[in-house]
Simulated assay, not measured.
Amino acid sequence: MKLLWISAAIAFVLDQASKYWVIHVLGVSQFNPIDVFPPLLNFRYGENRGINFGLFGDGVSVWALIAVALVICIGVLWWVWRHPQGRLAYASAGLLIGGALANVFDRLLYGFVLDFLNMSCCGINNPFVFNVADIFIFAGAIGLVFFGQDGRARKKGA
């Protein structure tokens, strides 16, 4: 479990530090985008008031979104506590929880999730932005799928 808390703290701090650096130090805003490595990596200011890609941004309260994120975090913690996991699953759970809590912190601080990463490729102009916490949430969820164990004995050869 110690690895879970370490990876959660790392994910949280890296997300918040990256947002501070890009928005407050580099000055990315709606009127000041930065092309870092165009078209693959760009910094574009975004305020996500919904879930992924801004879905349900107008119809769901910030408190409902915070509650859902916290319930998911508690659910993951409960699951790994009830079903001991390997190191990679604990690290994955920590990334997911740290990323989710970083986005919760944004909602408490700003009323929305601050996004700034934009990636496009191959002639496709991607209008969506995301943040480092989103990367950790996605990586953690994928890691839990591949490395998590549900506690049931597995049959050999299955």
Rank of each mutant, 00 (worst) to 15 (best):
L65R: 05
C121A: 12
W5C: 07
C122F: 07
W5D: 03
A9R: 05
G46W: 02
I124N: 07
V25R: 09
R152M: 07
V28K: 09
L117K: 11
P127T: 07
R44S: 15
A17D: 00
G151L: 12
F128C: 12
A17L: 12
S92E: 03
L40W: 15
A139Q: 14
S120H: 12
A67P: 01
K2G: 09
L65G: 00
R44E: 04
N48M: 06
N48K: 02
F105Q: 02
L96F: 04
S7E: 15
G148N: 07
G148C: 11
I137M: 09
L65Y: 01
G157W: 02
N42Q: 13
L41R: 10
D35A: 09
M119I: 12
R152N: 08
N52Q: 02
N32W: 10
R107L: 00
P127R: 10
L26F: 04
D58S: 04
W78P: 01
L109E: 11
K2Q: 09
R49C: 12
L108W: 14
K155V: 13
F53M: 06
P38V: 01
G157Q: 00
L4Q: 08
F37V: 15
F37Y: 03
I10W: 14
V71Q: 01
F53S: 00
N52Y: 03
V28R: 12
N48E: 12
G94M: 05
F138T: 15
H24D: 05
S92A: 12
A158Q: 03
F146R: 14
Q85C: 02
K19R: 04
N52T: 06
N126Q: 06
Q85K: 15
L96S: 00
V36W: 00
Q149F: 00
A9D: 08
V104I: 08
G86S: 07
L109T: 09
Q85E: 10
C121H: 04
E47I: 08
G140K: 14
F37N: 15
L70I: 05
D115H: 12
N125T: 05
L108G: 09
Q16S: 11
L55N: 08
